[in-house]
Amino acid sequence: MTIGATIEAVPTELARGRGGGGPAPTRTVVAYGFWIFIISDIAMFSALFAAYAVLAGQTAGGPTAGDVINLRHVFIETVFLLLSSYACGLGALSAELRQPSRYLIFAALTFVLGAAFLFVEISDFVDMTRMGAVPSRSAFLSAFWTLVGMHGAHVTSGLVWLLYMAGQVVAKGLRPHVLRRLLCFSLFWHALDIIWVGVLTLVYLMGAR
């Protein structure tokens, strides 16, 4: 029995992803590594979610969740973030099809929608500051600002990263390593949506009832 015959005895669909069929493509390995980072980021967020969940009622006589939440704004934020994710996905498709100009258009859309999300979030934070709902006011507000602010900080760093990636596409073109970085960015941007689903549900929808 030759080695070739041994390998052929394993059905392709079973062999791939289980060490058969040679090493996985670099793209798969890179995406897996970045996926592990995302999981660790989600584990970090879980601590903030846990803190918020146990402190949400500890308002120390200050503003409650119902007082500081503007659900209209939150709905607009959610739609902005979803559309931004959609634009990011279409941009990833354009990049895979090696269409840099289309990629840049979708990247610009992704950026504008993400920035619009941040604008609404920051203006809400400014309103909260004006009404005295600052992090030092109560345990609830500390947890609120930390959790929502951490998500906002992630969106901000995502926007910076997006600018950097657009620069790389312009300067280097859609080379394989640039494509892999774009893939990581897409994973990051879509994962932020998953975090936002948690924030939306736990903080806003349950808080504003």
Binding site: I7, E8, T12, A15, R16, G21, G22, P23, P25, T26, R27, V29, G89, A92, L93, E96, L97, P176
Partner: peptide, 19 residues
């Protein structure tokens, strides 16, 4: 077999793109 061709390890393959 198509999967066990003579690609060198780690060479990009065209992933079936999401649509």
């Amino acid at each position: 077999h198509p999967v066990f061709d003579d690609r060198s390890p780690g060479v990009e393959e065209q992933e079936p793109a999401a649509s």
